[in-house]
Design a protein around this nucleic acid. Structure first.
Lengths: 214, 214, 214, 214
DNA sequence: AATGAATGAGCGTTCATTCAT
DNA sequence: AATGAATGAACGCTCATTCAT
């Protein structure tokens, strides 16, 4: 009855064991180092050695966790997608009008960027000649959902009848490029940016000007 | 009669000497090879050897013209800017209203992209996971002129009173991202894209929808 | 009464304990894996990892048994020698004439090679360009015994007065090289090979030719 | 008249140019280094770096000359074959009887080994557990010619009717193994070894014993 | 005693860059 | 000015070996 083990049974194996712990830590360390280095140098310029150098681990250790830099990159991108896409999805579901939908999209994206400045800002600091954008397959897939959504909205008459490919491109372009400005501001005002972008897309420049008038 | 140039005709003084000629040719050859290779492999994966191999020149010769692949890349980008910026500038001058100005900007950019598909399209095809964008210092400087212009327009009351930084970011974002779609279309309709972008920025989605209605 | 060993009888002392058992098993497993891998890849190309991978043991465990792959190799070769040398020795003792002695040597060797085709044949198949021969110190020691024996035989007048070093070299060379042909034949006829070799050494080519005549 | 250049005209471009010279030297250096290292460590154990380390050249330089250690190995073996095979061939042609033919084979081989002690002795010094024999494809091809020759001799009745495969194997074995002893002697007597081997194969042990009797 | 992750030396190879020709 | 071989740093990766668990 008073079997002590029965108590622990209710909870899943709590002690991860030192081994599992350090394994998890190392994996994390590599991924975080990867984030920084990819941001700083770009994917192409980054070497596996750059990454492990930053972790302080031995060179060989890298290969206990990933087969190549590509695999780390994938892992990072999967994590990114895991963070943003669910939020995009839930916004989408919640939206009751096209405006709400659009606003939701912008908001989530800007919010993500601002709260991941850790990634994003370093990314921009990379003054170099080229930029790695976050539009990896996973992220693109996220935006693809946006495009598909948009198509449905147009088909069902919720959104106005427009060239969906161009519209989604424009939305994505606005989102990315405005993000750059947003993170440079202190403090970054996500609401404001969201408002600007949403109004621009819906009603154009004139409407924005009106809004900002007293 | 005493045309002084006729005299120089006998001596190849003003015409570039053979030396200068081949020098210029080699430089050109390297730059063109660079364009192809960067487009094919992406900046990071491209090696100096890839470039000179394509020219047929000796490896050492490269360094008579450029110090590194970065320098070639800069040179290419400078050339790109040199091609677009004057056109952007002349459009700017010609514009008699804000709408004309905006339309001019989009048109020149889309037109450039379409007629440089050789670069652009391959560039995009290149790598799924990441992108080299053309926003090098020079190109960015070009867009900076746009921003400055925009500021003037807003200050002088020609353009509506809006957050100029966000607006220029949005315009640039739209331009870049729509370019991708534009070059994929067959045939690419620069006018249509220009129209879409201009109307979106000026009057928003609703206006576009109205336009496309019969 | 106070026989201390009687006490240990109650405990499984004389039978190998479970510990000793698995220890022996592991050692065996490593050696067998080594045999296969060395045969398949050749000594130089074989890695310790290849060996332990085949055993299913952990990599660290290897070092409880051997210090390096060289040591495993030595162990294997020692075992090989252990299998052949006693037989060579007993043949030597049994021999009543020089011919019998010589015939015995060849027979044992050829027989061994044929019945260890598992090692031998794969070993040869291995690499065209080079060969690992089984003439490790141990094996060589075996042949050294042959040489010493030969010396005694010559000294005592049983064998003809010849250059013993050359003769033993020739015998060994014949044995090794003919082995290669022997194992290729289907079925390999040990008697025939033994006969050929013995007659060649004793009476030369002419004698062999006579034998094969009807 | 006394134009000095006209004299040099008659001879082909004598100056190889410093460039070609060093190129040839480097190639030689790599091959020689390869000879030593392969002999010392065996093919499998040898690394490209071992080879270039011995030349004093930079690591990258190796790859201006060979794609891999295999290629160096091939080059070495080709050279070896180039040295021995023509001599074997001419001996073969000159031979007027089977005995002459056989004697010629042994002589050329022993002579080669003795005069290439530079290779051969170091090879043996490699006290290790394994040996690389010179029986690479090229060398084997040389011996294959011997076997083919032998077959013809047997078919035409010049040589006695025997198992050709076994006989050539025996000859090769005797040649290799006796070489080891031969090079250890001081001075190495090629004639003597040739005589021993030839007589053994032709008439067997008994004949040798008779010869050495006063 | 067994495990298997961590380690870092070392490997094959490529590359940007230099420099004698 | 052009050449292309030499250089050696650096890369991706594997391996023998160690050591905390």
């Amino acid at each position: 009855m008073a079997d002590p083990s029965s108590q622990t049974d209710t909870l899943p194996a709590q002690k991860p064991g030192k081994r599992e712990q350090t394994k998890a830590n190392n994996r994390r360390a590599i991924i975080e180092a990867g984030r920084h280095v990819f941001a700083e140098l770009g994917y192409g310029e980054t070497t596996v050695r750059d990454i492990i150098r930053k972790t302080g681990l031995a060179s060989g250790t890298f290969y206990n966790y990933f087969k190549s830099k590509e695999e780390v990159f994938q892992a990072i991108m999967d994590e990114n997608a895991l963070r943003v896409r669910p939020r995009l999805r839930s916004e989408r579901i919640r939206a009751k009008s096209f405006e709400e939908w659009l606003r939701g999209m912008f908001f989530v994206f800007f919010d993500y960027v601002v709260n991941d400045q850790h990634n994003y800002a370093i990314m921009r600091r990379n003054s170099g000649a080229l930029r790695v954008r976050m539009d990896t397959p996973e992220i693109l897939a996220g935006f693809d959902e946006l495009r598909v959504d948009l198509e449905k909205a147009v088909a069902s008459g919720i959104a106005p009848q427009v060239d969906v490919a161009y519209l989604s491109a424009a939305i994505i372009g606005i989102a990315f490029e405005m993000s750059d400005r947003l993170v440079m501001r202190d403090p970054p005002d996500v609401e404001e940016a969201t408002d600007f972008a949403t109004t621009l897309v819906l009603n154009g420049l004139g409407a924005i000007a009106e809004k900002s008038r007293p």
